[in-house]
Design a protein around this nucleic acid. Sequence first.
DNA 1: TTTTCTGCAAATTCTTTGCATCTGT
DNA 2: ACAGATGCAAAGAATTTGCAGAAAA
Lengths: 149, 149
Amino acid sequence: MSRLVAQASGILRQCGGRMTTQRRLILGTLDEMGGHPTAEQIYRIVRAQDPSINPSTVYRTLGWLAEAGLVDARHLAPGRSSGRREQFDPSFPAEHHHFVCTGCGKVVEFASPHIERAKQEFSHTQGVTVERASLTLYGLCAACEIAKE
Amino acid sequence: MSRLVAQASGILRQCGGRMTTQRRLILGTLDEMGGHPTAEQIYRIVRAQDPSINPSTVYRTLGWLAEAGLVDARHLAPGRSSGRREQFDPSFPAEHHHFVCTGCGKVVEFASPHIERAKQEFSHTQGVTVERASLTLYGLCAACEIAKE
DNA sequence: TTTTCTGCAAATTCTTTGCATCTGT
DNA sequence: ACAGATGCAAAGAATTTGCAGAAAA
């Protein structure tokens, strides 16, 4: 059983929800495919295994997964007009951030202690509670940097 | 003449574009209203001054403003389903980041030297070029923190 | 057996586009 | 005059919703 299926089962048990075939399929796919798929990409893959599945089910599943905090919804694609599709990012194993290459669209995940400091500093100086942070860096990856010239 | 109108005029002159009444109105509104309005909020305000203006014009104007780098399109609203509308953030005077209160939706802008460091570290260790960064912190503002109890 | 979920289709929401007309330059 | 912008209405993409039937607990 995949990690997400296990986590989700626990949550469902606590709130009286049900682990259905469709949910298991979507969760397993999310876990396996990795990266930051859009709802449509997820749908395409699960449909290959169960052609009767419906996009609404994918959206609904992603909806409560995001509410439960098991995945984060992000807009990684840079610029306008490409940032309209949400991308889903399993929030595991820990808070992480993203570098997006504006040339080829490649996404690299990373962790940074600087962000932890930025959170602390901001919460101290402003007297607020910071729960989570999302940093996205935009730039050119090595390959695109070379290709540019 | 507002700052944005001035900046935009310069850009338009360079690329053979035209400063129209509608653009002046939209730019002035963006400058005056501040914050991080959605296209619809902008439209509502400009329509009050010129009822003949059309939403497409607002979208088109925001489109090239974003391309020109005079405004940034962001998804500040936290969670799913609220993050669907783009918000437009005049990119002035310098790169800045956002704290979003998940209780009341209030947005606070701030600058942080830590982010500069995170950018540098990432670009050095990965051999990429980082052009810009966007950090959003989510949490509870002081008032919402109190209200929670 | 009782909720909860799913599939379906229709509806919404946000945004873009085609085209005739109008307007800066 | 002429390239470029606008308004309008219609199209489009992504996502949500209402509801009757299906399926977990």
